[in-house]
Amino acid sequence: MTSQSLTSDQSVPSAPSTSSGGGIRGFFIRSENARGYALLAPTLILLFLAMVIPVVMLVARSFWTQSGMVQTADFSFVNYEMFFAKPIYWAVLKKSLYISGAVTIATLLLAYPAAYFVAFKVKKNKLIWLILITVPFWTSYLLRVFAWKLMLGYNGVVNSGLIGIGIIDEPLGFLLHNVNAVVLTLAHAWAAFAILPIYVSLEKIDKSLLEAAADLGEGPIRSFIRVTLPLSMPGVIAASLLVFIPTVGDYVTPKLVGGSGGIMIGNLVQNMFGRGNNWPMGSAIAVVMMITITLVVCVYLWLISQAKKRSS
């Protein structure tokens, strides 16, 4: 029924029509593509102004050079040479990828049970649960990071709580200002972005498939491994990309809770555009970061497609 009406919707305007007349109106009625682009146009224009132009400028500037206050617009690889000559840049980039990877894994591990619970165990008022998941977003990102600072600080909630119930005598120093604090804070900050896509893919699973797995002799754990998990993989993959890509370049969280050990590539970029006052170098770092993330994501997706091929 729907597919029929869909195809007829498409075939009518694309058929050579004599009655629709000329002019812009007729053009839009005849051309499926024109209508599509017209709908996309506002977004495309905004994307072009706010994304494409800045990225082009960024790439262009990464080939400039700066000495003191003067930027020279000559084509030069000097920034990129610098990036690979000084081990600090590459090391921080690797560390950023490592931290984001850890954040992604931690977020998925935290998000999956939550999504599973809402999809399978909540019978009524699912919407309320979904809204509750987004509640942290009702305050600003900065405030949430500060909240973790309060939680984990030397005189923070965790330390005073533990002292209060007599488990420790002195505050623990290793809670804040390190990589673990960055991973924890980011995992919490991005949880909803992982929960929602996983929830959607779990919700779509036909419940009779799980009954069929049980009927064919598989207990709850095996049913999960053989049916639920593979069928929810699209959500897991989407969630992992949604978390991994933006966290690599994050600079607020490492700055606030990461200390000197938790520095990420975003902090270096920020520094170059700020106190370091070397915009071309900052641009070059940003470009290398973007290319690296793209490569990592491509390899990740390629590995997934290989795994899929092998299993079927």
Binding site: L209, E211, A212, D215, S223, V227, L231, S312
Partner: peptide, 25 residues
């Protein structure tokens, strides 16, 4: 006795064919 240990098997109304597996699987 839970479903996965009963000596019965079922043909579901929707057939419940696992979409991520081949016919043989």
């Amino acid at each position: 006795i839970p479903p996965y240990e009963r000596p019965v098997n079922m043909v579901f109304q929707s057939y419940a064919i696992f979409p991520h597996l081949t016919v043989a699987q």
